[in-house]
């Protein structure tokens, strides 16, 4: 039995929308082993992104517990969660979310500003991360000077630069053409298989999900699982 990295137990999340209470997640249980690469699929509004936010400490459950790497996220304060995110998790978004005023190199260095690394060390580590994603020669370019695929690679470099155990990807190929999307997904596979990153990827795209080791389906805030093809 593999070691469990993330463990959700009885997680529910509801929002107040006007006078109506909307339950996005309903008593959801889930385990994610270390080294897993799991795709989460489901229709819009099914709770995929909310689930990802729970795993990343961006949101708290209304009830239930979220444990990642032994840390009980649901009971942490905002500052504790910030500290935890800076060292344990990397995020990749659909629209890359790079800072347009910074070069690729400086974007990748951002998480390292929260560490005690010197400027030189930060630059070296960012260069390594950019090299891993194949963009060493684009370090001085700003996001506006990069293609969508290159921007997403920079975002992945930023996500891995502080060497987190868990990568959370929210529709990472949703804004890319098929060919570029495949390149990004292969890169994620490499990060999973060669660098040992545990990856949770939310996607609408069944082809993208095929790159994962397994796929979980979320519907109406609940989970059903089946093995990947």
């Amino acid at each position: 039995m593999s070691e469990i990295l993330a463990e959700l137990r009885g997680v529910s999340r509801s929002y107040q929308k006007g006078k109506e209470k909307v339950e996005v997640l309903h008593e959801l249980d889930m385990d994610i082993p270390v080294g897993d690469f799991v795709a989460i699929m489901g229709p819009s509004g099914s709770g995929k992104t909310t689930l990802l936010n729970m795993l990343g400490g961006l949101d708290r459950p209304t009830s239930g517990t979220v444990k990642v790497g032994g840390a009980e996220l649901s009971s942490m304060s905002n500052n504790q969660l910030s500290n935890w995110r800076s060292t344990h998790v990397g995020f990749v978004f659909q629209f890359y979310n790079l800072l347009p005023v910074l070069t690729a190199q400086k974007n990748v260095e951002l998480p390292l500003l929260l560490t005690n690394f010197s400027a030189k060390e930060r630059a070296e580590r960012a260069a390594i991360a950019l090299d891993i994603v194949g963009l060493a020669d684009r370090a001085r370019h700003r996001p506006a000077e990069l293609s969508g695929g290159q921007e997403q690679r920079v975002a992945i470099a930023r996500a891995i630069v502080s060497d987190p155990t868990l990568l959370l990807c929210d529709e990472p190929t949703g804004d890319l053409d098929r060919e570029t999307a495949d390149e990004i997904l292969k890169l994620l596979q490499v990060l999973n298989s060669e660098h040992g990153k545990t990856i949770v990827m939310v996607t609408h795209d069944a082809q993208a999900a095929e790159y994962a080791k397994r796929t979980l389906h979320v519907d109406k805030g609940q989970l059903e699982s089946r093995a990947a093809a």
Binding site: N78, R85, F91, F93
Partner: peptide, 15 residues
């Protein structure tokens, strides 16, 4: 706003 949210996501504290 999106960029500031990204900073927080990366671990920058509110303060």
């Amino acid at each position: 706003i999106g960029e500031l949210a990204v900073l927080k996501t990366l671990g920058f504290r509110d303060q």
